[in-house]
Structure formats: C-alpha cells, structure tokens
Design a protein around this nucleic acid. Structure first.
Lengths: 136, 136, 136, 136
DNA sequence: TTTT
DNA sequence: TTTT
C-alpha cells in the first residue's frame, strides 16, 4: 500500500553502472548510514544499504558521484527473491531510488540525480499547469 | 532540496472539487490528524491539515471519499503567500498530495487515489521496463 | 545519518513474540506491501517486509494484531550480517519499528502499538539493551 | 494518527533561541526548501518553512548553525490557531523538529542537533512541558 | 567488502 | 469550522 524510505549516507564505493538487455541504464550504490550514537562508549554502528537507481538518474549518479560522497535517497524498500548458486532461495533487500540528491556538491551548484524519470514528474506535478492557481 | 510528508488522518468534510481555468481538476481535503496522546489526562490534540490533490486523483477522491474517511497522504508541504482582503500578506500551508491511499475501504478492494498523474509514474518506474531484471 | 521508512501493509501471519535473555520483549511481524500497479496486465507484485518491534509495543502487537491486519509502521531499515549454517556470510534486512499504528481496528478505537517516548522507546531504543540480540 | 515530515534546506537566517517561562529552550529556524525545477524556463520556486526545535537540540542549533547552513529536519507538521491583533482567527504552520542533522559541517565532524531520546526528546516531547507555549 |  |  505505502512504502517510502528516506536515507542519508555516504557511498562506500563508486557507483556501478550497467544496462539491461533492453538498454535501460541502472546504477547500484551502497550507502553507509551511521546509526545515531546515543552511548559514546559503544562502537559506532552502520547500516550498509544497497540502492538501485534507474534511467537518466543512474547515469547522473555514475557521472557525478564517487566513493565517500554524501547523498539523500528517497525511494522504496524492495525485497527480491532469488536462488543462490546452490539452489537455495535467498532474499535481497535494496532501496529502489525515486530521487537522489547530492548533498556535498562543491559550492552546492544545483544538484540532484535527475528527477523526472519519464520526462514527467510524479510529484510536484501541480507546478506544470502553465501557472494555474489553486482555485480555492 | 527535499520535502516529503506522510500523514494519516480522517476527512473533516467531503472533498471539495474544482477546476482551474485551464480545466485541470483540483480537490481540497482537510485531514484531522490526532497527535499521539502520551498523557491520558491532557485533552486530545489534533492538527487540521489542508491537502490539495490534482488531476485524476482529485476526481477519484471527490468520487470515492467523504467526511470521516481514513486516508494516507504522501506529498510535500507547500507554503503559499497571498494578500488578504485588507492587503496584508498572509501565508497558507497545505500539503500537495502525490498519492492518496484509502485506508478504510469496505473489504479493502484495491484502493488508491489514482497514482501516475501523467500516465507516467515518477516512482516504481523500474517495474515498467517490460520485465527487465536488475543486471547485478 | 538519516534512516526513516514508513510502510503500510497487512500481516502475513500472527506476530511472533519472544524475550531476550535480559527479558526484553521483541515481536516479529511480516508485512505484505503491495506495489502500486500501473499496468493492469502485469500480475500484482508484493514486497514481504520483516519488521521487528521492541518492548511494550511488541506485547501490544502480539496481544492485538493477527494475520491479515492492516498496520502502518514507522521505523528504520536495519541490515544485519550473520553467518549461515555453512559459515557463509549473509545479510538480513528488517525494519526496526519506532511506532506501529493499527489501521483497521473495529470502529477505530484508539489504537497504536504503544508509543511512550519517555522511559519507553521513542526510536532506536532497541540498541541500548546491553547487547541483546534479536532472538529469532 | 501519523504525521511525519522530512525536509532538507538552508537556513534563511540565524536560529532564534528563546526560553519558555518554565525555562525550556526553544529555537526557531526558517528553512528555504527549493522545489524540484522540471522546467528550466520557469523561475525557481522555494518554500520557506518555519521549524521549531526544543530543549538541548534547540541550544545545539543556536550554537552551531547560522544563516545559509544546510540541514535535514525530521519532525511533524503542526497547525496552530491563534487570534491576530484584530481578533481574527489565524492559522500558523510549522514543523516541530524531532531531529536536526547538520549536513554541511566542515569536514563532516559528527554533527546533529542532539538526539538523546532518553530523558531527551524523542518525539513530540514539546507537548509535555506543562502547557508551555512557543514564545515567538 | 564498506563511508566521514 | 472540524474527523473516529
């Protein structure tokens, strides 16, 4: 019904860009997301979260991001099932990115992984009606 | 940079449907969102949040929702400036809905405000590539 | 840095309640979260997401929820590493719940997994139980 | 029922720190949150969002943030009603912060508005100060 | 396997 | 102005 995740973290490595057999770009990132550290005595804990980015955003990430970069990812949590090389059913979790924002761009020049996957928006669509105002 | 809100609440009244001069449907909902009540002695507190829904989703809401219905809204917080009837600059806050989910539909037959504002998606786009698998 | 997920879905089975060796209650839920279906021809796709709930909320869930119930979970995505029975390093993904809301309670009498930020959990509290592991 | 907002933006001015009559620290920030710009021809649009931060986090923000700084705020949208100086009922919208993350700290030394869920705030803590009002 |  |  609803599945929304927002994470901020740093890339543990450069993005990995591939293309599907249909020629669609897809990039894989891994984000290190530190957990809040309430107890200074305990060692730092980190979740390493795989992120999948599609299409133009994938190429933007591949071209503009690298290991160590800070990003915000908004997307959904996807649980994939697959059979490993011994034929055992395994599950893989990854975040399918809707948007990727670059947070530590030098001097913050405008910076995002490229929204609008279809040339459309999905969001903020109301700003595309040629200046229509809300009639209330 | 990022502006994402998710609220669950009940409609305080029936949706109000209008059309812009360009013929675009837009609905206005008000949601009563109860705050968590930590202290049973204190009276219940509620935020009444205005929600704006566009296009096909607007008509879906107008046709299917009514006062008292429970919905989940995902969108962004928009702060609009306007001049009141005395010429004083005022601010209005509203949530511009990206998606509206109907949560108390009888028997939960599939139920949403209608996504895909442009026929495109904006989200979950990766499921539209004709069955392409992630090549990792 | 930031790790926030919100999902709405139905329990695929009754909650499983256990206690850590330190006596802390922990419940495990699995949620079926349907993906938005843009193409009516494709079959419905669903993510099955494991959710871990701690303390009083865990007992509330165990006492009040059952298979098929609709809930909203807010929490964080946790990636755990472990060695399987062949000594191979595996990863498990689960949502650690901050709050669980019951959405289809009969007549919607007040309904939540039990918040109680003071002395209760708030968020991430589960990481402070002296090293208790999830007993599943 | 559920009310969660996450915004990333820059402070339009230095934080304003005050204390309630009960001695509780509260800071007010205003964030400029740029909307995604799908159409390069249209001028940039920005939402200016008021944020209220309580307790230790308020002092952390006042001591460490200034105009122009980039932050991520997680919290809830609060709609307050009040009477203006002409006795007219007005509404004010603000985000009550649960956490504030500093995103452009020099060299990213550890950096947050101060979480501390225990004895600290967690979420919604601001509603437990014996009726203290926001002193702005 | 991991980032600052 | 307000929902269960």
């Amino acid at each position: 019904m609803l599945n929304k995740i927002i994470i901020i973290g740093r890339l543990t490595r450069d993005p990995e860009l591939r293309y599907t057999t249909n020629g669609v770009a897809v990039a894989k990132l891994t984000l290190a997301v530190d957990r809040p550290q309430f107890n200074k005595d305990r060692e730092k804990e980190t979740d390493f979260i795989d992120v999948v980015v599609w299409q133009k955003q994938a190429e933007n990430c591949a071209n503009n991001l690298g290991k160590g970069r800070l990003v915000a990812v908004e997307g959904r949590l996807q649980i994939r099932s697959y059979d490993d090389n011994q034929g055992i059913r395994r599950k893989a979790a990854e975040v399918v990115a809707e948007t990727v924002k670059f947070l530590d761009w030098p001097k913050d020049r405008e910076n995002s992984g490229g929204n609008a996957p279809y040339g459309g928006s999905g969001f903020g669509s109301e700003i595309n009606f040629g200046g229509d105002d809300i009639p209330f």
